[in-house]
Design a protein around this nucleic acid. Structure first.
Lengths: 135, 135
DNA sequence: ATACTTGCAAATCGTTTGCAATACC
DNA sequence: GGTATTGCAAACGATTTGCAAGTAT
């Protein structure tokens, strides 16, 4: 569990003013302890039903700012479905086709034995493994 | 190189009438020999600049029909960027951030040593590896 | 006081769809 | 001729943006 002052500090460290909206969204994202995967719509819904007045546009902006600041990571699984993941460490995902949900796979559960060298003049930024599963 | 009658046959086998538009798009996709990665916009541009009269909506419909017929595979790399891959075999991708291009990685260049079991009641459909690279 | 944020509504982007006109068998 | 396909334009869903009003430092 993360205290609200810890969230304030985190925002300050990222150069973002701790506004009411950012604090509320930050608490939803980082306050629960467990890693989360959310879309902008989902997070907006949570904020609103919790009583926080915030517009969807601000949720989008905030998620993008958090991502730029390295507090979140984008995960792309389906067209028209952009998730933001609070787990910014090394890990992969299960993607459940049908319900369109994402589940973390801890990095130590997947090991990639061989990878090709990056094409000439390019460097590897990240390797994403998505295991598509179906019920 | 694939002859136009071979494309006609392929369309017929998929239950699709070999119309002028589908033949032209099929020739662009499958006629060149090498595997291709295209977006609908790109393919439409190619068709138009080659003199084929075809609407963007038809390109979208055709790509979806080809995919449903197993002639193409969808690859998702970035939000708002759906690629269609003529290589339907087992393989992975380099995604070049910045230019937003895709490169195939042959299946035998990647080996995944360990994978977690699928969550209870689910079966693994496919494992996608995307190696994000940057110049 | 000043610069940064927010909210709204409009704009944009990629993609899909309804429907009348057209092409294929 | 009858059904599948096309093109257009409108509809769509997700995301971004311009700008005036509000808020943090």
């Amino acid at each position: 569990m993360m205290s609200s002052s810890a969230i304030t500090d985190r925002l300050r460290a990222a150069g973002l003013r701790p506004t009411r909206q950012r604090l509320a969204l930050g608490a939803l994202l980082f306050g629960g302890g467990a890693d989360r995967h959310v879309t902008a719509e989902e997070l907006h819904g949570e904020a609103v039903s919790q009583g926080t007045r915030v517009s969807l546009a601000t949720v989008y902006n905030t998620l993008n700012q958090f991502t730029a600041a390295g507090l979140l990571r984008e995960v792309m699984v389906g067209p028209g479905r952009l998730y933001f993941d609070t787990n910014i460490g090394d890990h992969h995902h299960f993607y459940v086709e049908g319900d369109g949900t994402l589940l973390d796979i801890p990095a130590d559960k997947v090991s990639i034995a061989r990878l090709p060298a990056a094409p000439a003049g390019m460097s590897v930024e990240r390797v994403d493994v998505v295991v598509r599963v179906r019920r």
